[in-house]
């Protein structure tokens, strides 16, 4: 069964199959969840996982599978530990950016694994893949032809590459406060052969001001890392045109070592986005398989909204 699965993967997405084999051989404790993702979302798993692992192999060379597998292992182990502690404690561990900076962001060796671990969750976690499908099927068609997009907090650049590959008519401005993140994102964009349509800038998403407003915007996996997430949404609103579609994600009762702002439910995110001048069009909340032993169910929420042109719309 496992062999059949691997042979099929090898045929459809060889780079992803190599990661799968690395996980099986060296990090087998993570295989069950990845196998479940592959079985439940086979087409999206192969589509995104195959593409993303191809980019990673181009960016990292022969060490890619080990780097991604190890980074994923580090990341998931930390997530599991944080979630168990969160369910006992009842609140996130860190409440300020400084606490997270001192314990996580200032640790270069940890951050290298962290970046690639987060990168891999988008195609190895079933509920993240469902957000990806929502983004591809419901948000990208809303983006006007030849649009300019701003991405606030591009991280490892996987959303940047996905967007630029899916919309070859568009140009992206991706910004991140971390130069090391942008270095990785630049390599991923080059590997995805979209570097000529993406500009990367070291900038604070909370204060960035574009000379010209953008036609559309996105910010993924960032809100929960901020002390005051409303400032990010407000600045996104300032940097896009009226009527511009935007895509935002938020983690809800999902403890990770660098999650600061604890959204307790989807409604809190909706209110925050609407308060910044957007009208919500559509949303998708996705969760891993519920585990009744835990107090909290972690979810990832994707929201599509437009910047209002009038008081109501």
């Amino acid at each position: 069964m496992l062999q059949d699965h691997h042979s099929n993967l090898m045929r459809r997405a060889p780079a992803l199959a190599r990661l799968y084999e690395t996980l099986r051989a060296d990090y087998p404790t993570f295989l069950a969840a990845v196998k479940a993702t592959a079985e439940h979302e086979p087409d999206d798993f192969v589509e995104l996982g195959g593409a993303a692992m191809g980019w990673a192999e181009s960016a990292l060379g022969t060490d890619a599978c080990q780097m991604i597998a190890r980074g994923y292992g580090y990341f998931v182990t930390d997530v599991n530990r944080q979630h168990i502690e969160y369910c006992l404690r009842g609140r996130y561990k860190n409440k300020t950016y400084k606490e997270v900076y001192d314990s996580v962001y200032d640790n270069d060796s940890y951050m290298t694994f962290y970046h690639w671990g987060v990168f891999a969750t988008l195609f190895l976690w079933r509920h993240h893949l469902r957000l990806y499908a929502f983004y591809r099927d419901s948000f990208l068609p809303l983006v006007a032809e030849k649009a300019s997009l701003v991405e606030m907090g591009s991280g490892s650049g996987i959303w940047t590459a996905i967007t630029a590959r899916a919309r070859p008519d568009c140009r992206l401005s991706a910004l991140d406060i971390s130069k090391s993140s942008l270095d990785i994102a630049t390599r991923v964009a080059a590997a995805a052969e979209v570097g000529d349509r993406v500009s990367f800038t070291v900038a604070d998403a909370l204060t960035y001001e574009s000379e010209t407003p953008f036609d559309a915007g996105l910010s993924c996996f960032l809100l929960e890392h901020l002390e005051q997430p409303e400032n990010l949404v407000a600045n996104l609103a300032r940097n896009v045109k009226s009527g511009a579609p935007v895509f935002l994600t938020a983690a809800i009762t999902a403890a990770e070592v660098d999650h600061i702002y604890e959204f307790r439910n989807e409604g809190e995110v909706f209110r925050l986005i609407e308060a910044a001048g957007f009208r919500i069009l559509e949303a998708k909340s996705a969760a891993p398989a519920p585990d009744p032993r835990f107090k909290f169910l972690p979810r990832s929420l994707g929201v599509i909204a437009v910047k209002k042109t009038t008081e109501h719309w």
């Binding site: 496992l2 099986r24 087998p28 404790t29 993570f30 295989l31 069950a32 969840a33 292992g73 998931v76 182990t77 599991n80 530990r81 168990i84 585990d291």
Partner: peptide
Amino acid sequence: SSPVDTANWDSLATLRIAM
């Protein structure tokens, strides 16, 4: 016995064993 051939042995179970 390993996670490859043992039912229910996922990364969360590994952490629970360790704890």
